[in-house]
Amino acid sequence: MFDPKKLLDDLLGSQIPGTSGTVRDKAGQAVQMAKDNPLAAGALAAVLLGTGAGRQVTGTAVKLGGLAAIGGLAYKAYQNYKAGNAPAQTPAAGEPELLPPPADTAFHPSQAPQGEDEFTLTLVRAMISAAKADGHVDDEERQKIAGKLSLAGIGTEAEQFLMAELESPLDLDTLVAGAKTDAQKLELYTASRLTIDPDTRAERGYLDLLAGRLGLPDALVDHVEATVSAAKVPAGTSPNPRW
């Protein structure tokens, strides 16, 4: 069985423990060796989205690792929402770096009632569902993704899991049911929003539908939007925005 937490790290381009680079770098090296360049724009999320444009997670969020970063961003958004602060999409001067969620809160991975690995898989599924939101992942795109995943070095089982999820029809009921607590519902939405920037009606509509099904108040969603936006920077553009 593959490690769900490592896969989540790979999807967000988080640093790989024990190395000086990220899966983004490793994938780029593999592609260069193959005299091709499909992964140069970003981590596995770029493969799933089929684009090198948009924005990517950066800074402390990358260093924390996928699970802690998602929990930290969701917790930060929740704290700002409860404090009645206005959403701010740019970090304030001198603002402290993003921290993992406190261990005594429902946002900490150790508090997951279904276990860390199971909830991590739910977050991965949420990211894949978001990646499919604009409908561009057709049969031809899936074939291209399969070829590029084999270059990313994530392992056969992880590849098979991602491809199976890509080929599965959207099941929002099962996805939403995978979040067992209010904190997990917010984390699930945060992971989805980290995956995509809602530049199309389909993507915006998907996120709005997801927030509604999760029962998230509009004001809380606004804080997630602001918190995620502040954690992302423009990614390098590619001369071929799809592939």
Score class of each variant (00 low, 15 high):
residue 136 H to F: 10
residue 186 L to E: 10
residue 225 E to A: 15
residue 119 F to Y: 15
residue 53 A to N: 14
residue 200 T to M: 12
residue 53 A to S: 14
residue 111 Q to K: 12
residue 139 D to M: 07
residue 182 D to K: 10
residue 38 P to T: 05
residue 175 L to Y: 10
residue 17 P to W: 02
residue 38 P to Y: 05
residue 197 D to C: 01
residue 144 K to M: 10
residue 175 L to P: 12
residue 88 A to T: 14
residue 19 T to R: 03
residue 199 D to R: 11
residue 34 A to T: 01
residue 63 K to F: 08
residue 173 D to N: 13
residue 76 K to A: 13
residue 237 T to Q: 13
residue 223 H to T: 07
residue 13 G to R: 00
residue 86 A to S: 14
residue 152 A to V: 03
residue 217 P to H: 07
residue 121 L to Y: 03
residue 211 A to W: 09
residue 155 G to I: 11
residue 154 I to P: 00
residue 103 A to P: 01
residue 198 P to I: 05
residue 215 G to M: 04
residue 124 V to L: 09
residue 136 H to W: 05
residue 201 R to G: 11
residue 36 D to Y: 01
residue 224 V to Q: 02
residue 115 G to T: 05
residue 87 P to S: 10
residue 197 D to E: 11
residue 41 A to W: 06
residue 143 Q to P: 00
residue 97 E to A: 13
residue 135 G to R: 08
residue 243 W to Q: 13
residue 15 Q to G: 04
residue 48 L to D: 06
residue 225 E to H: 10
residue 195 T to Y: 02
residue 210 L to E: 06
residue 218 D to L: 13
residue 75 Y to V: 03
residue 96 P to I: 04
residue 56 Q to H: 11
residue 35 K to S: 12
residue 28 G to M: 05
residue 133 A to Y: 11
residue 155 G to Q: 09
residue 116 E to N: 05
residue 213 R to H: 10
residue 166 L to D: 08
residue 58 T to M: 08
residue 99 L to W: 00
residue 2 F to G: 02
residue 62 V to E: 02
residue 86 A to Y: 06
residue 234 P to I: 00
residue 55 R to T: 02
residue 76 K to W: 03
residue 88 A to M: 12
residue 70 I to P: 01
residue 113 P to F: 05
residue 180 K to M: 06
residue 35 K to P: 00
residue 161 F to S: 04
residue 2 F to L: 06
residue 111 Q to A: 15
residue 162 L to K: 06
residue 169 P to D: 13
residue 28 G to C: 11
residue 15 Q to F: 14
